[in-house]
């Protein structure tokens, strides 16, 4: 114990004309059970009041504190300093617009994503407050929740070479969201509707299978499987009318 940690932190305040992007080093004594949440707050309180970063729930539930930690995107709140070497380099997430230092604007990006994939249950039904709820199989509810666990931290997007290169690529988070609604019987969208959203090179066919998303997802969502199945589903959706009957497939997620 009692290491002295060196933090190399990206600094830039776009609102300050005198500020230029640079890396700044801070030193801090490590304490028991120290996480980046504790370390960064101490740095701000004790060393530099202007240091910008985002935390919210600090319990890996809200996804606010994603940043690039020693090269890999991750949630700062559950990153323990003892798992890292003496020098820790912190950078803001790429792809998202920089607000300052380690803070980026994920809200605008994710709102745009939600609108683009129409992230809601499309139904023609009208809620009847006097009626009993529609029944659902518990196993199905659990499968939907499994994909609904995404916290929109942005790590999968930041770790995706495709998303870095092409800013119109939907990213794993959006494809996962679509898969969540594909599973949900309350959403009445047809396969063609889903195809219109993701059946393009900006959607599932743009995915190059780098699997950065799978490997950094802090919630361990099954993104590899979701993206793979979705690709297969959409590929057959496009090709079924050309195929002989025995080759046609309707892929279930």
């Amino acid at each position: 114990m009692a290491r002295t940690l060196t933090f190399s932190i990206f600094r830039y305040n776009p609102q300050d004309p005198a500020s230029v992007p640079h890396m700044q080093e801070f030193r801090l004594e490590e304490t028991e059970s120290m996480t980046l949440f504790i370390a960064l707050n101490r740095l701000r309180e004790e060393q530099d009041h202007s240091l910008q970063f985002d935390f919210c729930c600090r319990a890996a539930i809200c996804g606010a504190c994603a940043m690039v930690i020693n090269g890999r995107p991750g949630l700062a709140c559950h990153s323990k300093t003892k798992d890292y070497p003496d020098k820790i380099t912190l950078m803001p997430l790429p792809v998202f617009k920089l607000i300052g230092d380690l803070s980026v604007d994920t809200g605008t990006w994710f709102r745009g994503m939600a609108k683009r994939v129409e992230s809601w249950c499309h139904t023609k039904k009208i809620f009847d407050p006097t009626a009993q709820e529609e029944r659902m199989d518990n196993a199905l509810a659990e499968r939907i929740y499994e994909l609904d666990r995404c916290v929109e931290c942005g790590c999968c997007v930041a770790a995706c070479g495709t998303a870095l290169m092409r800013d119109d690529f939907l990213g794993a988070v959006a494809l996962n969201r679509v898969a969540r609604f594909v599973l949900d019987p309350r959403d009445e969208r047809s396969e063609q509707d889903y195809f219109d959203i993701i059946g393009t090179d900006e959607g599932v066919f743009g995915c190059m299978g780098l699997l950065g998303c799978q490997d950094v997802c802090p919630k361990s969502l099954p993104l590899q499987e979701v993206l793979g199945k979705l690709r297969l589903k959409m590929a057959f959706a496009a090709a079924n009318h050309l195929l002989p009957r025995f080759l046609r497939r309707e892929i279930k997620l």
Partner: peptide, 11 residues
């Protein structure tokens, strides 16, 4: 203060 989906309700 934060994107709506990060609200403390989520915790």
């Amino acid at each position: 203060l934060v994107p709506s989906r990060r609200s403390h309700s989520s915790a």
